[in-house]
Design a protein around this nucleic acid. Structure first.
Lengths: 248, 248
DNA sequence: GACATTATCAAACATTTGTTTAATATTGTC
DNA sequence: GACAATATTAAACAAATGTTTGATAATGTC
């Protein structure tokens, strides 16, 4: 007999097994890496038989690919409608520098608060960091549909805020340093926690980080020299909302 | 017959074999991670037999430990006498904020130029980043004798530069954001290279990064509010030169 | 040159790994 | 309830991995 929908909301038994497997896979792939993690451990953690992985996903590699897909969905979902706000600004003919600066600050803060600081996203971040290390299939996916899109959006905002071409190497480098201020907390999470004597990057602690971050950005946008008219925004970035792009 | 010293400078045959294995191990551990790397691959890359690893190091794990030691040595060696300069400043009774700010800038630039940007240090950075992900034996070593020492030194400098207690959470968080501006280039190396269309972070490209970085720091130290006297530097950090410290 | 130490190597070994199989149980449909 | 499709499981399998072994070569010392 089919289990009523209100017991397993919208999910067939098949989908529930897949989901449990996926959740366990994120955790264990994150902790041990694609090579260190074993299908047996993942299956055990998900309360499933080893063969279930081959049955539902077609093997370890395919499971890993599915995990990547899930991470990307989670990533964009957590950012809510902020990407839409950026896209809005991108459509304007003469976006205001102050507005761009403000949105950049909000976006980076949101990335920290909703994503990087979260205890429930540690495994995801671990996985992403690992994939940053080398060009594998996982890296390609995350870069093309995650990092690059976000990076381009941030470069656009920084470009407008500082009156520079978003594709100028200096703008890209500058944006990278801004991004690093936030991402470093996630990438060296354990070390940061220890140095601060914290148990988590969330909650009250997140408030301090966000305060420091926003103060940094404000100071930078106030103090950095703005380019004279002429070297202004030329092309603009790719639209942040068209996330499935080839090339580069 | 013993090979004359000038043919294999100061190295016995034993040491040369160990060295070749170590070099190959850094590269392959860096690329594939401790789990992904196999002893057979490392041995092949080093031109040695598989059994040589057990013979000279006592097994894969011990080889990995030895690699960590080597990385630590390389790390501090590349920083030259900059740590000594920090230690100098730490000994002064009333270190000048401007001098601290200048040294902080020089230190972070040196970390980028001599370490993070270098093509010949990619494998090392990869290994370090991987170890950042979780508390394993490798992490403990790198944290206690690498990250923590550097972090404390930077916090001291930032504290002096901004007139704040180096152990105040806000100072530590602030320092972390400063550090992240540089380290992010190494931690997301591949992504940064692609976004910039660069082949390397070295040379001419490094000049741009350093320029942006120093401009950021200068702007921040000029614009961030300095604490009033009273909330001034209290304890100072541990001495940067005593690198083998227990606790924390 | 003889002898002991050290180094090198291919083969063997025991585990662990991802995957497949084949039998059994469950579920959905009529 | 019968039948077919789908799920689940333990066992089997082949490939790989880290380690050990035992034999042979090279090296250093007297």
């Amino acid at each position: 007999m089919r289990v009523p929908a209100f017991f397993s909301p919208g999910l067939s038994k098949r989908d529930r097994a897949r989901l449990k497997l996926l959740e366990a896979a994120v955790r264990i792939f994150g902790r041990k890496g694609p090579d260190g993690a074993t299908v047996r451990e993942i299956a055990r953690a998900a309360g499933q038989n080893v063969a279930a992985i081959a049955y539902y996903f077609g093997g370890k590699q395919k499971l890993y690919d599915a995990v990547m897909e899930g991470i990307l969905r989670e990533l964009w979902q957590r950012l809510g409608d902020l990407p839409a706000e950026v896209a809005n600004l991108q459509q304007q003919r003469e976006p205001a520098p102050a507005e761009a600066a403000r949105l950049l600050s909000r976006l980076l803060s949101a990335i920290y608060v909703r994503l990087l600081s979260r205890d429930d996203a540690v495994a995801i971040v671990q996985l992403v960091v690992r994939e940053q290390l080398g060009p594998t299939s996982g890296f390609e996916t995350l870069y093309r549909r995650g990092f690059r899109v976000l990076h381009e959006a941030l470069c656009f905002l920084a470009g407008v805020a500082l009156g520079r071409d978003p594709r100028d190497p200096e703008t890209i480098v500058r944006t990278h340093t801004l991004m690093g201020q936030v991402y470093f907390f996630a990438m060296s999470r354990e070390a940061a926690l220890r140095r601060l004597g914290w148990k988590s990057l969330e909650g009250k602690n997140a408030e301090l980080v966000v305060r420091v971050l926003e103060q940094n950005l404000e100071t930078l946008f106030a103090g950095l020299p703005r380019a004279r008219a002429g070297s202004r925004v030329k092309g603009g970035a790719r639209d942040i909302q068209t996330q499935n792009n080839p090339k580069t």
